[in-house]
Design a protein around this nucleic acid. Structure first.
Length: 343
DNA sequence: GAAGCGTGGGT
DNA sequence: TACCCAAGCTT
């Protein structure tokens, strides 16, 4: 890290900061031509340069990460790009604690993309277990096939190539490129978005969907150095996961509490529209889950009767089963039999 | 841009 | 007990 030390005599402003170290909450991040400028640390403006402001955030968070990062299997060197990619699929909307055992089994069984690609897709769905959103298993299988066919069996390094794989969107492409290959990307997941919303923007929660303003801010905050940028991505995400949590945030343990715009503003509560809650009981989603659980736990074909037993409302049950078939999660056979997909 | 897509643990 | 929430993606 070549950035300026956090506190240099550039503080011509804010003379007597009685309690906290010179607070500069509102990061004056460039609004145009985002971070293309090189680190012009030498700029002589009276207020700290954006790079200096950003470094004031980076340094404490990177240091905190050194001592507080969890020892997760996909962070170990032996995980490789495939391990990172598998973990990212599994972690899409599923907590770490539930991913851990399935991840270990998955990597032991399919240590390379080609190993998974050689399997029937239904085996991926079965091994997915109860992680939820089983379409992810199908997409991971499809991604493994594409990697095997188009990329010689190696997880591609380029963001655009990753993005072209099934199940990989903006976040996952950036995460794999950054975590697996040490590249410089804005990695905007829900944790990072929350950290930036609070520390920089001064609000309790980010918008429901990722906005252009958030992307611009994240890019502006990206350290210039590639390796530092990759560590910043991991550490800011970890901060959101462990300290700057959605509920019961722990500001007392936060390395940037002194600079958090939201904390400095007195932690004003969120005023925008509430997140739309995800109902579940009685929905097609629940029925799909019950149907697929039967298929997962049965090797070979399942009878219509066995599926009928999981839900008594026939119209909804049929609709859910049709949906699973349409999604490729279930394969219908002749004679009212069903199984996990072989192809 | 909103809706749909699983599951289980915490409060 | 009912919510709320967890490293999103696709249509």
């Amino acid at each position: 890290m070549t950035a300026t030390p956090a506190h240099t005599p550039d503080a011509v402003h804010t003379p007597a900061a009685a309690h906290l170290p010179d607070t500069a909450p509102a990061l004056d991040i460039p609004s145009a031509t985002d971070s293309m400028s090189t680190t012009d640390i030498t700029s002589t403006s009276l207020s700290p340069s954006p790079a200096t402001e950003a470094a004031a955030l980076h340094t404490p968070v990177l240091a905190w990460f050194e001592t507080h990062a969890r020892d997760l299997p996909w962070r170990r060197p032996e995980a490789g790009a495939w391990g990172v990619m598998v973990s990212e699929f599994m972690l899409q909307q599923t907590p770490v604690s539930r991913v851990l055992p399935v991840y270990e089994q998955w990597l032991a069984r399919w240590p390379r993309p080609a190993d998974l690609a050689a399997e029937a897709p239904g085996e991926a769905v079965r091994a997915w277990g109860r992680l939820g959103y089983p379409r992810r298993a199908l997409r991971l299988h499809g991604a493994a096939q594409a990697i095997t066919e188009r990329h010689g069996g190696d997880v591609p390094r380029r963001h655009a190539q990753l993005l072209a794989l099934p199940g990989i969107g903006e976040y996952t492409a950036a995460a794999v490129a950054s975590f697996a290959y040490g590249q410089r990307h804005a990695v905007l997941d829900t944790n990072v978005r929350r950290v930036l919303a609070r520390a920089v923007t001064g609000v309790q929660y980010p918008p429901n969907a990722t906005t252009a303003a958030e992307r611009k801010l994240a890019r502006a905050l990206l350290p210039a150095d590639e390796d530092t940028a990759a560590r910043w991505a991991a550490s800011s995400m970890e901060l959101g996961a462990l300290v700057c949590t959605a509920k019961n945030e722990s500001c007392a343990r936060c390395p940037i509490a002194a600079r958090c715009a939201w904390l400095l503003a007195g932690k004003p509560p969120h005023d925008g529209p509430a997140r739309r809650g995800q109902t579940y009981a009685g929905t097609d989603r629940q029925v799909r889950g019950k149907l697929l659980a039967v298929l997962r736990d049965t090797h070979g074909a399942v009878t219509q009767r066995a599926l009928d037993a999981v839900w008594d409302e026939p119209v909804q049950r049929a609709r859910a089963l049709d949906g699973l078939v349409a999604d490729g999660l279930v394969e219908p056979l002749d004679g009212g039999l069903y199984r996990l997909p072989r192809s």
